[in-house]
Write a protein that binds this DNA or RNA. Structure first.
Lengths: 161, 161
DNA sequence: GAGACGATCGCCGGGATTGTTA
DNA sequence: ACTAACAATCCCGGCGATCGTC
C-alpha cells in the first residue's frame, strides 16, 4: 500500500464513484482507469479477519458518507460482510430497554419509542438509529469486541464515525 | 490536499504516466481520468466556440437566457456535451425523496410531485425543475464536484445562475 | 399535465441535549 | 444523594412542493 496526495475535488470525485460497500480507493480507480482488477480479489474465499474493516479505514470509502448515521450503517455493513456468523452471534447487544439489532424493523420498534430503525445493507439485520454519536460508537465497539476484533482496530473504527 | 492509499501496482501505473518533472499525482490522475484541469492554465486557446464551461462563462452566452431555469438548463447542456461519460456517472444525485436526473421524464415524475421535468438539450437526460434558485445552484455544484471540476470554477458557474 | 417561475413555508432527518433509571 | 448509563425529546439545517406572482 502506497500513500498518494490528491486535491480535494479529485478526492470527492473518487469517493463519489463508489459502487458498493467495501470498495477501496484502489478498486474505484482501477474501474475508472479501466485496468485489470486486483488478482486476489476473487480468489480469496475466507478473508483474513480485520482485512475488510482495515481496508475501509485506509481507503476513502467513508468519505462519501456525509453523516454519522451513514458512516455507522456503512461500518455495520462491512462488519457483517466480513463475518456473518460472528456478527449474528455478537449482535444481541441491548441497552436498558431497547434492543439494538434485530432481523426485522418491527422487533426494534416494539422495544422502544422512536428508535428509527434502518436496514443494514447486504444483511438480514436492522439497527436502531436514534442515538447520539457516542452511543453509536459504543454499539460498534461492543459489537466488534464480541466479534473478537483487537482493541486498536476497534478504537480506530470508532474514531472514524 | 487529501491522502489516499492505493495498491503498489496502481501506484506504479500512475507514476509511469508522468508527463514531465514535477507533475503531481492529481495532475496525472486528472489527465488519465479525463477530468478538468485544476488551474485556470488553459495554455492553448480552445478554438471551437461554445466548447466548454469556461468558455460559456467568458462569453455572454448566458446573458440571452432570461430566467434561472434557462440558465440552469443551458449549463447542464454544456456540462453534458463537455463530458457525457463523466456526466452519466455523476448525475445520480438525489434529494431526500426526489431524484434529480433521469433518462426519462417518467422516472422523475414517479419520484416526486410536480417536479416539472425538462429535457436537457443534446442529451438523453431529464432534470427536475421545480426548485428554488438555491437548490438549482446546489444541484449544479454537486454535479460538477462529482464530475471533478475544481472548486473555483464551480463557484463561478453557480454564481452565474 | 399543461402557463411559467421560483420564493416561501411546512416537514423531515440527524443527532446533541436533556430527562430518566438503575 | 450521586453517578453512570441509557432513552428519546427536541432543535436545527436541509429538502419538497404549494401557491403567490408575473
Amino acid at each position: 500500500m502506497k500513500t498518494i496526495e490528491v486535491d480535494e475535488d479529485l478526492y470527492r470525485y473518487i469517493a463519489s464513484n463508489t459502487r458498493h460497500i467495501g470498495e477501496s480507493a484502489s478498486d474505484i480507480l482501477r474501474r475508472l482507469l479501466k485496468l485489470q482488477p486486483a488478482a486476489s480479489a476473487v480468489a480469496e474465499p475466507t478473508p483474513v479477519a480485520g482485512k475488510g474493516i482495515a481496508q475501509m479505514l485506509g481507503g476513502n470509502e467513508l468519505a462519501a458518507d456525509e453523516s454519522a448515521i451513514d458512516r455507522f450503517m456503512h461500518i455495520l455493513a462491512v462488519l457483517y460482510r466480513e463475518n456473518p456468523t460472528s456478527f449474528a452471534q455478537a449482535c444481541d447487544i441491548k441497552g436498558r430497554k431497547r434492543i439494538y439489532f434485530a432481523d426485522s424493523e418491527a422487533a426494534l420498534l416494539a422495544a422502544g419509542n422512536t428508535t428509527k430503525p434502518k436496514a443494514i445493507d447486504g444483511s438480514p439485520y436492522w439497527v436502531i438509529t436514534n442515538t447520539n454519536t457516542g452511543r453509536k460508537r459504543n454499539i460498534v465497539a461492543q459489537l466488534m469486541a464480541a466479534m473478537g476484533y483487537p482493541h486498536g482496530l476497534i478504537e480506530r473504527v470508532c474514531q472514524s464515525i
